[in-house]
């Protein structure tokens, strides 16, 4: 029986994970950390085995109080850190604190914590570099996107990921990094979801790369497996569905217009300026030309994770093989 602390508990994936952990008989207690100040932020009934707290993780003092206060008192052993900034257009110190400094604080505090023995970081497939010269099928040793000109959204995610990787073997606690495929669903921060869920999808003319997409259910399963696992490492977490971008647009039921890149960039900038939509073509440009598919062999071998839940596509339904 273990105690688990989950940050980002009010996100779609966090909520699903917390729900699974509360139902898991191997879990003694769950501390769900969310951004909502509501006492009942989680929309499901829970008993004494769940404590919901509202903590601003961008403030290191609050993180310290959480880990050496409530988490120590409830003998938390595993921290699952999901809470990273999700808006691709936001910039600045506050965004950096939420994504990078919060991760750094959790890792540093876990080192000298009396009960925490494992930290699981949910990272993203976006940390990988996409280029002509690189494979489409991406293993964990694939180069990361260290381009200094990359948007802060990418740079922060790469820094958080590397911050965790650089602690492996040097902390008292084990560190696990899960680089997850995008989960198609609201509240996941998925750029692809934002792209598909628009009234019209503009994609680069003449290019139709392969994409791999996951479901909230599968990502939650991978996080749960990592929570109960042992050992350290970086693991790709692919989704069930691998298909061309055009096919994903068609299955989502979104009208699609192929267009030249500069036109697409400006159209999405305009759309963001007018309706505040979250999709950034600049962040996804290379991926929309050359593709990126996560190889999940290591997660299958060492964590026992195999994606089993296909996306429930609005057009044509889920595909099972």
């Amino acid at each position: 029986m273990i105690g688990v602390l989950v940050t980002g508990a009010t996100t779609a994936i966090g909520e699903r994970l917390v729900r699974a952990l509360v139902a898991d008989t191997r879990v003694r207690h769950v501390i769900a950390v969310g951004r909502s100040p509501e006492t009942h932020a989680l929309p499901f009934a829970h008993g004494d085995r769940l404590t919901y707290v509202h903590v601003d993780l961008a403030k290191s003092r609050r993180v310290h109080e959480l880990l050496f206060g409530l988490a120590r008192d409830l003998e938390i052993e595993v921290v699952v850190h999901l809470d990273q900034h999700q808006n691709a257009f936001n910039k600045g110190k506050r965004v950096h604190q939420e994504t990078v400094e919060a991760t750094r604080s959790i890792l540093e505090l876990s080192h000298r914590h009396p009960t925490i023995r494992r930290v699981v970081l949910k990272s993203y497939a976006e940390v990988y570099k996409v280029s002509l010269e690189l494979p489409v099928l991406v293993t964990e040793d694939h180069p990361l996107n260290l381009d200094p000109r990359a948007p802060q959204y990418i740079r922060d995610r790469v820094e958080a990921d590397l911050t965790a990787c650089s602690r492996m073997g040097f902390l008292d606690a084990e560190v696990v990094v899960l680089r997850c495929a995008e989960a198609l669903g609201p509240g996941t921060g998925s750029q692809l979801f934002s792209f598909l869920d628009a009234p019209l999808a503009l994609r680069p003319a003449g290019f139709d790369p392969m994409v791999n997409v996951a479901t909230i259910a599968d990502i939650a399963v991978a996080l749960e497996l990592a929570t109960h696992g042992s050992g350290e490492g970086v693991f790709n977490v692919p989704g069930f569905d691998t298909l061309p971008l055009s096919e994903s647009i068609r299955k989502w039921g979104t009208p699609c217009v192929p267009a030249p890149g500069p036109l697409i960039r400006n159209a999405y900038r305009l759309r963001h300026a007018v309706v505040g939509a979250g999709f950034s073509y600049g962040i996804n440009r290379r991926r929309m030309h050359y593709g990126l598919v996560l190889a999940g062999n290591r997660a299958a071998d060492e964590l026992g994770y195999v994606p089993e839940n296909p996306v429930d596509w609005p057009v044509g339904g889920p595909v099972r093989t």
Partner: peptide, 24 residues
């Protein structure tokens, strides 16, 4: 990097010559 050609080639089975692709 070639529009249309890259997609049609990929559909017929052509792969980019990176080590990771051929290894897989």
């Amino acid at each position: 990097s070639l529009p249309v050609v890259s997609t049609l080639f990929a559909r017929a089975g052509v792969v980019g010559g990176s080590r990771g692709n051929v290894r897989a």
